[in-house]
Nucleic acid binder design. Structure first.
Lengths: 132, 132
DNA sequence: TGCAATTCCTACCATTTTAGTAGTATAATG
DNA sequence: CATTATACTACTAAAATGGTAGGAATTGCA
């Protein structure tokens, strides 16, 4: 029941981009320095955020990343799901069509409820909530 | 962000014990058969539950396990914490004395909130809620 | 033109965690 | 004293985690 570094670092990258936004692109080198995370590992995390369409990017000299939208328009849950993958607490909830034994399983609706509690919370926060 | 088999099976063992309780001890052999889990693996899970004081046990012939208390007196959160270990979503929250950078970290209170959301939910359910 | 800075993409790897299996000792019962 | 059961400990294969590494593609600037 742990969030991995991917999700945690992703939030740090996004808050870093939000807080240091001056209109220019921000390089991973700068973010890595501020956050104390290796550039090479950040590349992989940013790739996920980028694939999800959360960033504007520019390659080459003076290139880097910046946010696409205003901080209050980023749902934290979206960021976490994009980097952590599915946050469902157990496999049964992720299976397409649902677990076949859901009607027999006494725990199923409990896990459903936990899943909902988690998602309700992370979807109630935006990037703006974090940086203030 | 997954619950492991330890926690999931633990809940199944507890519900099995609750539902099949006729006053006699219930052997792992029976539980294993009903639940489709190997006896040997169940031994390890039950050991955790036992260490937490949730069970009455009897060795030898006709031995086995039974619940200590009424189903409604078992908090699901307690069962999960006993078998999964700490459910805090990130390491910072588990560190004794708290994360040293908590005042600098923009995400800290977000993770605290997630931890609370999870624990509030799992502590609001009892074994009785599951078996009905 | 060419070099430096940067993202992009993919492969690799050590360590830890997960999900068990296995063996043996200990205890109780009939 | 054989059978049935828990108790304890060691081992292990496979997967996930948390990175490192190398090189290709792109862009800005001197």
């Amino acid at each position: 029941m742990k969030i991995s570094t991917k999700g945690r670092y992703a939030l740090r990258v996004m808050t870093d981009l939000a807080m240091n936004n001056d209109g220019n692109y921000i390089s991973l080198k700068d973010i890595a320095k501020r956050q104390g995370i290796s550039i090479k590992y950040l590349e992989q995390i940013v790739a996920l955020l980028n694939k999800a369409g959360y960033l504007q990017t520019a390659r080459g000299n003076n290139g880097g990343y910046k946010l696409n939208k205003k901080p209050e328009e980023y749902i934290v849950g979206d960021i976490l799901r994009a980097t952590e993958g599915d946050l469902a607490p157990i496999v049964c909830l992720s299976e397409k069509g649902g677990c076949k034994e859901r009607n027999l399983c006494k725990s199923y609706s409990f896990w459903e409820g936990l899943d909902k509690a988690v998602n309700d919370y992370i979807d109630s926060k935006t990037l703006a909530d974090l940086i203030q």
